[in-house]
Design a protein around this nucleic acid. Structure first.
Lengths: 159, 159
DNA sequence: TATTGTTATACTCTATAACTATA
DNA sequence: TATAGTTATAGAGTATAACAATA
């Protein structure tokens, strides 16, 4: 059932084999990205939360906790730290007094931009060592990665 | 200087733009992979260390610490936990009495296999939602990701 | 002396449980 | 009563500093 063979004519891999290959590669990409961020002051979850706020705009606290896979109290404290550092801002929701809306500050965006610029320089140095064909394959896969990440996000936050 | 335009004819992106795009996508891949592993008993560093031991064979403790970007004492304790769980094994080096050689056990390999299988099922479900063209692009990029990760590893461990 | 690894201690981040405030 | 978020407390994982053993 899993490998029907239908609809896979475009790639030389079955869906199952592609998924298995991707999992291994994603693991290695995680290691790669971590090696580029070792001098970070912020935790991985904090950076990831800032990235979500940057991409998707203000969000309530509980939604952020769910998205990042941490508990509500953990997110309360994480946002408190980001606020303390001036990277995020908390605002009450006019429509519902219980809700806290969290948003990224200009300083938060600057932090992300700085971080990405540093990482881009490292990645660019690695890319320069690759075959042109490999570089082209990565460039051609960017929008597919975007689609994959979006599918994951929509699956995690169905409503 | 960064976007010379030379040697980028194969991809429609400059090296700088490709690097910048990749960094953003890698961030999102990290979030994706984390969402697939939320029920893990082991820390991300522990899983990553097991993966390194699985791919590259036995390694001394300091090398593992460097590779994972943690301190020597942290790796001492991490390996103690893996050993406690039966996932890794410590052995003295016959050639140098100071050295500890760490290797993955059969149980450790089974843990990784189980974990990857679960993640593959999730990824396969996401892949099924993508355009065939996107799936093909991801399949075509697997070996390029491998090359990128290897370049990073070789840069981090030059000797 | 330099290198490999361990022990001691403190800090950061997270989870669970109990709570407050609003709906 | 249910929901959004906070406070209190405990545990996991890490870093720095000081140490032991081998080279």
């Amino acid at each position: 059932m899993e490998n029907s063979g239908e609809g896979t004519a475009d790639s030389q891999l079955s869906d199952g084999a592609l998924a298995a290959g991707l999992v291994v590669m994603l693991e290695r990409m995680v290691v790669l990205l971590r090696s580029l961020s070792q001098s970070d002051q912020l935790s991985a979850t904090s950076v990831s939360t800032l990235g979500t706020l940057s991409r998707e705009g203000p969000s309530r606290l509980t939604a952020l906790a769910t998205r990042q896979g941490v508990t509500q109290p953990a997110m309360t404290q994480l946002i408190a730290r980001l606020q303390e550092s001036g990277l995020a801002r908390r605002e009450p929701d006019p429509a519902d007094g219980r809700v806290v809306q969290v948003s990224i500050t200009a300083e938060g965006r600057a932090f992300l931009a700085r971080r990405r610029e540093q990482q881009s320089r490292h990645i660019a140095a690695l890319l320069a060592q690759l075959d042109p064909g490999h570089r082209a394959a990565l460039a051609a896969a960017l929008s597919a990665m975007d689609a994959l990440a979006s599918a994951s996000r929509d699956a995690a936050v169905p409503a």
